[in-house]
Design a protein around this nucleic acid. Structure first.
Length: 377
DNA sequence: AACGATTACAACCGCTCCGCC
DNA sequence: TGGCGGAGCGGTTGTAATCGT
């Protein structure tokens, strides 16, 4: 015996929404909040399934969504994030303020996927379909590096999601004020709106990415306030994510940090430790934040990231001047301090990204150029 | 002008996750 | 601890609009 359907199908309207239905839904949510989606249609006088109401609200009626043509910047963001995250549209949407996952998904399927295909790039792997842009060895390393980045970004997003859920609880306990009118009518904000509200400018993944393709290679060290850099050591026995800019730009630039900051807005300058779920986070006197995050270790283990044992993983968030210099600190790996320093300082660990950098520059250049002259566009 | 093909996107469907009891 | 229900996610479909012949 299967579970009961989410709603009684008989007698319920399907298909496009009429302006009258939109108005009813909008008016009800603005007045009462959505509450239980299942119960909403009856209360709002709609002959619709609750699921349909939720979708209509989230993808179309919500006041804090942007509609219309995607900008070139947004297109690049989607392409880059898709390379990192795959078809995780909701995760991608969290980095595109005011865009819905459905809209991004549709835009990818109808525009960007075809565009990449016509450019000779596999939209699934984001690799050229021929060897024209690199050797087989280079592409293997591209693939491995992309895979590593994607897996680690996934792990980071999971941690972020947990923090967001906590933020959600905080927001529910402290209902939005009139200042948060965009959250419209006391609705319980969803993940996307929480993220958008807490970090409207956040593109931390992209900044990490830009740090990879530009900053870390010394191409654009003057990039404005990079917030993250990723390093993937050749021998894979240490991974560090160094976040820069734990200062007044901190809240707006990094959601993970922002969420942590919300949890302990007095941590700066103090030696203190806070526990978030199963996250253990410690700050030192320099404002550096140290994570010993069991889920990251678990994720690394479960995802069988090459060469990374659970104990080898250390996630480091550290303060910085935001001016582009970055330095990794200790890890829990088997490396001793001297080895780590020499390893970190010799720059060899950057080499694997050279192919990625070239590859991505090629993609983005092609996209940019194509947008202006190609008949494809 | 008519008609078929293509495109764009809103909406649906089925599944998974997560919290509650 | 397992079952249940609500919510969310990603894949797919339906359909209106646009384009090409």
């Amino acid at each position: 015996m299967g579970r009961s359907p989410c709603c009684e199908k008989v007698g319920l309207k399907k298909g496009p929404w009429t302006p009258e239905e939109d108005q009813k839904l909008l008016a009800y949510i603005e007045q009462h909040g959505h509450g239980s989606w299942r119960a909403l249609p009856a209360k709002a006088g709609l002959q619709r399934c609750g699921k349909s109401c939720r979708l209509r609200w989230i993808n179309y009626l919500r006041p804090d969504i942007k509609r219309g043509k995607f900008s070139l910047q947004e297109e690049q963001t989607i392409i880059q994030l898709h390379a990192l995250l795959g078809n995780r549209w909701s995760a991608i949407a969290t980095h595109l303020p005011k865009r819905t996952d459905n809209e991004i998904k549709n835009y990818w399927n109808t525009h960007l996927k075809k565009r990449l295909t016509k450019m000779g790039i596999d939209p699934v792997t984001h690799k050229p379909k021929t060897n024209a842009l690199g050797s087989a060895i280079g592409q293997t390393r591209d693939s491995a590096n992309l895979s590593h980045m994607a897996q680690w970004e996934s792990a980071r997003l999971e941690a972020e999601a947990r923090l967001v859920r906590e933020s959600k609880v905080l927001l529910v306990t402290n209902p939005p004020s009139q200042d948060h009118h965009q959250l419209s009518g006391g609705q319980i904000p969803n993940k996307a709106t929480v993220l958008a509200a807490s970090r409207p400018q956040c593109l931390d993944v992209l900044k990490a990415w830009q740090g990879v393709v530009s900053g870390m290679f010394g191409i654009a060290r003057d990039l404005e306030s990079p917030t993250s850099t990723l390093t993937f050591p050749e021998n894979n026995n240490m991974l560090a994510i160094s976040n820069l800019g734990f200062n007044e730009n901190f809240v707006g630039n990094n959601s993970l940090q922002a969420s942590c900051f919300e949890k302990s807005n007095q941590m700066q300058g103090l030696k203190e430790k806070i526990i978030l779920d199963d996250h253990e986070m410690t700050t030192d006197q320099d404002g550096a934040i140290w994570f010993q995050e069991s889920s990251f270790r678990t994720s690394a283990h479960e995802n069988n990231i090459e060469g990374l044992s659970e104990d080898d993983v250390m996630l480091v968030c550290e303060s910085g001047d935001g001016g582009g210099h970055h330095h990794q600190q200790q890890s829990s790996s088997s490396m001793d301090g001297e080895d780590q320093n020499s390893y970190i300082n010799n720059g060899a660990y950057n080499a694997n990204f050279e192919d990625n950098k070239n590859y991505w520059n090629s993609i983005l250049n092609l996209v940019n150029a194509s947008a202006t002259w190609s008949p494809v566009f």
